[in-house]
Nucleic acid binder design. Sequence first.
DNA 1: ATATCTGCAAAGACTTTGCAACCTT
DNA 2: AAGGTTGCAAAGTCTTTGCAGATAT
Lengths: 141, 141
Amino acid sequence: MRGTQQAEALSRVLADLSEFRSAQDIHGELRRRGEGIGLTTVYRHLQVLSRDGTVDTLRDETGETLYRRCRTSTHHHHVTCRSCGYSVEVEGPAIETWAEHVAAEARFTDLNHTVEIFGLCPNCTPAQLTSPTTRAQTSPA
Amino acid sequence: MRGTQQAEALSRVLADLSEFRSAQDIHGELRRRGEGIGLTTVYRHLQVLSRDGTVDTLRDETGETLYRRCRTSTHHHHVTCRSCGYSVEVEGPAIETWAEHVAAEARFTDLNHTVEIFGLCPNCTPAQLTSPTTRAQTSPA
DNA sequence: ATATCTGCAAAGACTTTGCAACCTT
DNA sequence: AAGGTTGCAAAGTCTTTGCAGATAT
């Protein structure tokens, strides 16, 4: 895509955002910064960037697609905070192997897989869940 | 929910369907069978059944939610055919352990995870992909 | 100059909700 | 009779598309 003001503004925001955000969030941030850019354009760029492998995408639990500038180029997965969106990348050679293995066993071909882990990050975890004296009373889904 | 005709008709269809289907597919099947039932009702029942753990849900790559009567009560994942929807259940103790491990390492709590493997089932796999002499030329996503 | 990009409005898809009529207990 | 259930229609999300006008090279 040609270097338009909108494309550059989006690049800048993506560079600044450290967590996964929805297209609408990103558009909101652009507007907040005073950039003139339409939601449609944001969607269109994100689509291209994600196909390029420039941004990483993930689906949250509501089905919304979240985007973030790719950190590592290698295949990886995420542990994402349900509450604040904070997310860490994790590599899982074990998972890749496992996925290939079980799929091969079922004679499936042309594979791909999604693995997402959701939870509460340290900051969003209620205190009693971290205290070793008070054991967790909630039921992990 | 009370035993209405609609609830029973839905139960019957779910019992017959062996693969994951969308709410709309299931509604279509019910209509095909001559059952008088609205799409809204199908959605409402599936929602309850899935919370009950009576049906299993999974999100396909387009973001649509698919449903199927639960087979095993234990935690498991699926290898699903992109083309025909055929799906097999796989258990992955290794995955569960891995997920817990990496999340704990990041100090996350109250975890849950999704793992979906998509591919082409044996029936939907083009012949040349299975032949050992002609190696795969396609680029697995 | 011209092919591309932009963005509003509208369409599309899936899912949920409001509410009156209906059916089950 | 009473209350949950049904289902049409309408609303709500997120996302994509049509198309005319603006823009970058």
